[in-house]
Design a protein around this nucleic acid. Structure first.
Lengths: 176, 176
DNA sequence: CAGGGCCTACCTATCGGTAGGTAGTTTGTT
DNA sequence: AACAAACTACCTACCGATAGGTAGGCCCTG
């Protein structure tokens, strides 16, 4: 049995990943987990506070997965497939966008502190790809951008197509 | 002097491209163009009606640009740079996401008819890339997906980074 | 004088947020 | 050990603001 705070964050994440920042509400979360919307304000005073907590947990979990990938795969080249699988999980299991992907697309409509938290996710991924995935490449930075952009973009296209086909084709290309 | 309908659509597009479907409102548009929000309902009865009109005009204009590119460049290989420039325009001139990119990421929160209109944009682009950009390639479909995903993804990353650097690196890679 | 294009005025629903209360638990003091 | 103070985790009830949408009137033009 998870705590109220965890259930709030979990449900908020689900709503944001479905429709973005403006598509989640305290009332909808409250109804979903069976408490009053006012009670959410006890744990997260404002909407930005909650959204930042959601993004923070999302990034933290992502970092943990990156560590697992690094530790389980000694050679950088072995790490690409499991890295791609992190995004495959979003579209195939969660059937939702990457949280930071959908938020990034709405950047200019987000509270400033939330922008910074989302930005951190991308900086962190780009740096990790360069350092632990493309170690021996010359233009690692450019290739890292290409990889991350392809994955985020293919998630978005797969959502609107209601099919994993685009994601599968893109990930197969990336693996070659 | 543009018509009221055109000014409504223009302003709605700007708002949607900034914060997504839930971030635009009849009242904000009305205020921006100097009419009453009720007057917008005369031209577009419901919010989905207006959003669909916005997406339709966006796609229609995109198609026109694709025709120009095709007609101005006899060889498929010459068409890549101007195609990329369509997306460069979004991030460098408009300083906004691709309308259909941001809407695609919110797919499951959109009215069904709007989903179809957004989907049409991507189907159309994928088909055009395959037919007029990668004519001689074997796996044209997969490469088209890769190209479009890279461009949409790099827009989204550039927005959150508040820098064109990622878009520039990705587009340079695509051109090689 | 008919109708297109806009207006005022208003509706209901929902939003984020606040005020104040309460049951149960924990903590500090004697 | 006993008791009071304080804290946690909720609750009900409400606020002003804003959302999309509707009804009906007014004015200008053909």
């Amino acid at each position: 049995m998870s705590s109220t705070v965890e259930r709030i964050i979990e449900n908020a994440e689900s709503q944001i990943r479905t429709g973005g920042y403006n598509a989640f509400s305290f009332r909808a979360i409250a109804k979903a987990i069976g408490i009053q919307s006012a009670s959410i304000h006890y744990h997260f005073p404002t909407k930005p506070d909650l959204a930042i907590a959601v993004a923070n947990r999302y990034t933290q979990r992502f970092i943990q997965q990156l560590d697992v990938i690094k530790n389980n795969n000694a050679h950088p080249k072995e790490r690409l497939a499991p890295y791609i699988d992190l995004f495959r999980h979003a579209i195939k299991i969660d059937k939702k966008m990457c949280l930071c992907g959908i938020l990034a697309s709405e950047t200019d409509a987000l509270p400033e502190l939330l922008q910074l938290e989302v930005k951190r996710f991308f900086e962190l991924n780009l740096q990790w790809i360069s350092a632990h995935l493309l170690t021996e490449e010359k233009n690692a930075t450019a290739q890292a951008s290409q990889l991350l952009a392809s994955l985020e973009g293919s998630l978005l296209i797969s959502k609107i197509m209601k099919s994993d086909e685009v994601f599968n084709m893109v990930s197969n290309q990336l693996l070659n």
